[in-house]
Simulated assay, not measured.
Amino acid sequence: MPRRHDPERRQRIIDAAIRVVGNKGLAGLSHRTVAAEADVPLGSTTYHFATLDELMTAALRQANEGFAKVIAARGGLTDAGADLPAELAGLLGEWLAGDRTGVELEYELYLAALRRPALRPVAAEWAEDVAALLARRTDPLTARALVALMDGICLQVLLTGAPYDEEYARDALSRLMPRPRPDTEAPSAPRPSGGPAGR
């Protein structure tokens, strides 16, 4: 019997991998568990993803899309007149207020790159993409610092279970923004000629 063409099978396998990590953690991820979750033959998972690192890379890249969708939906980062720290704090709030399981999953896959060098390039994509976007509103170094702080704030919220404090995030992010130069200060009055007494 000819093999039935299934163009969406690869995507179903990625979706299944994300569900397995969400339910069982990274320790429960294998070609076999993903095949069972996706309801496909084991050979299908190894056909599309020869190694577990390849499968995890695809899952991480898809998981990274969550924050990108929040950015695209909000749209304030492209407004030159918007308060950038306030926009970023609001973005984090929207992201963390969404599906918390999905956010935790993104970070679990993201942190897996510590032990799996093959994941590091895709793990860095999130930070690089957001920094490139922020660099349109500030300088590249400040953009990277803002991303690092946002990353740290998210990790603290996820690890401690504390509620997200948008006011704190806005204040912390604003401290990284360059201060405007005092270009508008009035020039000092010229000293009179002839010495201190004006003679």
Rank of each mutant, 00 (worst) to 15 (best):
E128G: 13
T138A: 10
A89C: 12
A186P: 11
M150A: 02
D151N: 09
S174M: 08
P180K: 11
L92A: 05
L155R: 15
C154Q: 13
L88M: 15
L176D: 08
L114Y: 13
Y168V: 03
R191I: 13
W126T: 11
D165M: 07
R170N: 06
D139Y: 07
P190F: 07
L133E: 10
Q156E: 12
L149W: 00
T160K: 02
V157H: 01
P140N: 10
L149D: 07
G98M: 06
A97Q: 11
L109H: 06
L84N: 03
V130Q: 03
L111Y: 07
P117M: 13
T138R: 05
P85D: 13
A112V: 00
A127W: 04
G90D: 00
L84E: 01
A124V: 07
L173E: 02
L133P: 05
D139S: 11
T160Y: 02
L159K: 14
V147M: 08
E185N: 01
D165N: 14
A118I: 12
R115G: 08
Y110T: 01
D129I: 11
E108N: 06
A135C: 07
A89R: 02
R120L: 15
P85F: 06
R136L: 12
A145G: 13
P117G: 10
A172Y: 01
T160Q: 05
D183E: 08
A143Y: 04
A145C: 13
G98F: 03
R100P: 04
L92G: 01
M150S: 03
L96Y: 09
L96I: 14
G93R: 05
A82F: 05
A145W: 01
G161Q: 06
A131N: 01
L114Q: 09
A132C: 12
L146C: 08
E108C: 09
A89E: 02
R116Y: 11
A80Q: 10
P163W: 01
D171N: 12
G81K: 13
L176G: 05
M177F: 07
V130S: 03
A189R: 14
E87P: 04
E94F: 10
D99H: 06
A89I: 04
D183H: 08
A172W: 01
